[in-house]
Simulated scan of single mutants.
Amino acid sequence: MDQDFMNRFTPRIHDILFRDEEHWRSHAYQVTIHSTRMCNLGFVVRGYGVLEVNGNSYDLGPGCYYQISPPGSSMKFTTNEANPLLYVAVHFDYRLAQWEGMSISSKESGSGIPMPHMLALDPVSGAEEQFRRLHQLWNGKQPGYEWRSRILLMELLGGMEKKQAAPSLAVLRAEEAIRKAIEHIHDHYKQPVNRDQMARICSMSVSYFALLFKKISGYSYVKYVHKVRMDKAKILLLSGLAPISEVASEVGYEDPLYFSKLFTREVGLSPSAYRKG
């Protein structure tokens, strides 16, 4: 799952249920929904069955994560009386939020959560305990249960992302090159190497470098440079009385007006207003 998605992911939980033997008996061991109304994330505690999502089948057993998205997907659960599926199910929807200064916008995502529909976990992963805790937290309805549940849901999605198939050696090397590029920006933010030069240093095409950089950092190369510079500028503005033009030059902008424009767009305040608190 790329970091740009998680940076903007804003979920709203509708319900968290435990599907037990009684649930399956009442549905004759089969549940079909032709068009889902929300996303579904679950963890199988015990039993076996088959999940079909948009015509693709996945075998489920103890220790399996599954996710069904986006809304509008077709799904079908099938199990049997001898060993029915017992699982925790989280029903939620989400929007992707984007901050611009002091303003925020959000939109629905039509492509669904960027991860496989099913993942099998190591039995000692601790995922079952996390899902049971989420179920208890939501259904206990104690003060703060909604936002606490949202945080735990995001942690669970992060855990699923980590359990995806290990990347190839080539991908690992490429990701390490991107991390070194990020380190370079932090060390040389005043005069960083431009994107095309950095792509050549990393032995990548410009398009692949741009794609991988955004996946790992959550930002485009240029926006990440601006972000690091703005963070440094905040420190300088609050720690001294240097003119705005000197602060701009110190973080790599020779034009103070351009710096002020970027700073205001990023932070929501002008440099002078930010300095005043």
Rank of each mutant, 00 (worst) to 15 (best):
H186G: 04
R173D: 00
E183F: 13
V171L: 08
R173W: 08
N194D: 08
K180L: 06
A199G: 03
D196T: 12
E161L: 02
V193E: 10
D187R: 15
I185D: 00
Q197S: 10
I201Q: 11
M160K: 04
R173H: 10
R200M: 02
A199E: 03
A170R: 14
P167C: 00
K190G: 05
L172R: 14
K162T: 13
V171H: 07
E176I: 09
M160S: 01
I182H: 09
N194H: 08
V193G: 06
Q197D: 15
Q197Y: 02
A170S: 15
S168Y: 03
E175R: 13
Y189Q: 03
Q191P: 06
Q164D: 04
A174N: 12
Q164F: 10
R173G: 11
V193C: 05
K180F: 00
P192V: 01
I178C: 03
A199I: 00
A174R: 15
D196A: 13
K180Q: 13
K162S: 09
A165T: 13
A181K: 05
D187K: 13
A174F: 11
K163I: 00
D187W: 00
A166V: 14
Q164H: 04
M160H: 07
A181N: 02
H188W: 04
D187T: 11
E161R: 14
H186E: 11
K162H: 10
K190D: 10
K163G: 06
L169H: 13
R173Q: 10
Q191E: 09
Y189N: 09
A174E: 15
A166T: 13
Q191L: 04
E176L: 07
K190S: 03
L169P: 11
D187V: 02
A165I: 05
E161I: 09
D187H: 12
E183S: 15
V171G: 01
K180S: 05
G159A: 04
E175H: 14
R179N: 04
E175S: 11
A165W: 09
A166C: 13
H188D: 04
K180H: 15
N194L: 06
I178V: 08
